[in-house]
Simulated scan of single mutants.
Amino acid sequence: MPTEWTIKAITRAMLPVLLPLTLVEIGSGLVLGTFESTLIRHPSLLVLVPVTIGTAGNLGSILAARLSTAFHLGLLSFGRADETLLGNALATIGLALTVFPVVGVGAWVLAWLTVGTDLSVLTVLLVSVTSGATLAVVAVVITFIATYAAYRFELDPDDVVIPVVTNASDVLGVIILFLAVRTFV
């Protein structure tokens, strides 16, 4: 894959990706708006929104960077038995399963210390872990698809995959968190 390292080439690769993602982000804000009264009523859930979305985006970005590096080194085959894909996917999900319990308890403690909370720590923990684990799986799938698409369209995955993953994590993070709240609260 010949890569042109100019502002014009990078902009040409990223602009068609970023413009639709900007519109998708507006949808995320609209979904969050419908969820506003629940968030105001339960401050610990309000604390979870940016942390959950940000953490999922970070996990997806880490995976995207690792896959991009493997891609540039010629270690990525996109086959079913590709150990690089499987190992990195499992590591990402394992990391999510260790981080999101801390996020949930931290959100509950922060809300309890500042404004009080009417939800139990177990409820916030369930919402955090469920939404975090689900988002990690979704981030892995989106990262695989975006990396493969970059490969197929001969784009540099460093230019396009991380914006796709972080934007998708923002949008789907709000929806998945909303569904977890509906399930457990």
Rank of each mutant, 00 (worst) to 15 (best):
L59A: 05
G87N: 10
V103G: 03
G79D: 12
G74T: 04
S131Q: 09
V124S: 07
V102C: 07
S44F: 08
A70E: 11
V115C: 04
L122Y: 03
G106Q: 13
A139W: 05
I93W: 05
L46A: 15
V103R: 01
G104W: 06
V138K: 00
I53N: 01
L73Y: 11
S44L: 06
H72N: 12
L119E: 10
T52F: 01
T130K: 04
T130F: 12
S68V: 08
I93A: 07
T52D: 00
V129L: 13
T130S: 15
Y148Q: 10
V99A: 05
F78Q: 07
A107H: 01
I53A: 02
G106R: 12
A146M: 12
V140G: 00
H72Y: 09
I142V: 15
L126K: 11
I93Y: 04
T147Q: 09
F100N: 02
G106K: 12
L90W: 11
N88C: 00
N88Q: 06
L86N: 11
R80C: 03
G79Y: 00
W108C: 02
V103F: 05
V121T: 13
S77D: 14
D118M: 10
W108S: 02
L110F: 13
V140R: 00
V115R: 09
S120P: 08
V102H: 01
G57F: 02
A89T: 14
D118V: 10
S44P: 08
V129R: 04
F71I: 00
Y151A: 06
L76F: 07
F71C: 01
V109D: 03
V124D: 09
A133T: 14
L48T: 02
D82E: 04
L48C: 02
T84I: 14
R80L: 15
L73D: 11
T147F: 13
V137P: 01
L90C: 07
G132R: 05
L75Y: 12
L110N: 00
A56G: 14
T52A: 09
V137H: 01
V49W: 00
V124T: 14
A89Q: 11
A136G: 09
G116R: 03
I53L: 12
I62S: 11
G74P: 08
L86A: 15
V124P: 09
N88H: 10
G116T: 06
R66F: 08
L46Q: 09
H72T: 05
L125P: 05
V47A: 06
A56L: 03
F71A: 06
L119P: 10
S131T: 13
T147V: 12
I142H: 01
V141Y: 05
G104M: 06
A91Y: 00
L110Y: 08
V121A: 15
I145M: 11
A139H: 04
R80H: 13
A133L: 15
T147D: 11
T117Q: 04
T130M: 12
R66V: 13
A96W: 07
A107F: 01
A91N: 01
G74C: 11
V140L: 02
F78R: 04
G104L: 06
I93N: 02
T55R: 02
L97I: 11
T55Y: 02
V137R: 01
L86V: 15
I62N: 13
R152G: 03
L63K: 01
L67K: 02
I145R: 04
L46D: 10
L97K: 01
G74H: 09
S131Y: 07
L135T: 02
G79P: 00
L86Q: 13
W112F: 14
A136T: 05
Y148W: 14
A107P: 03
L135G: 09
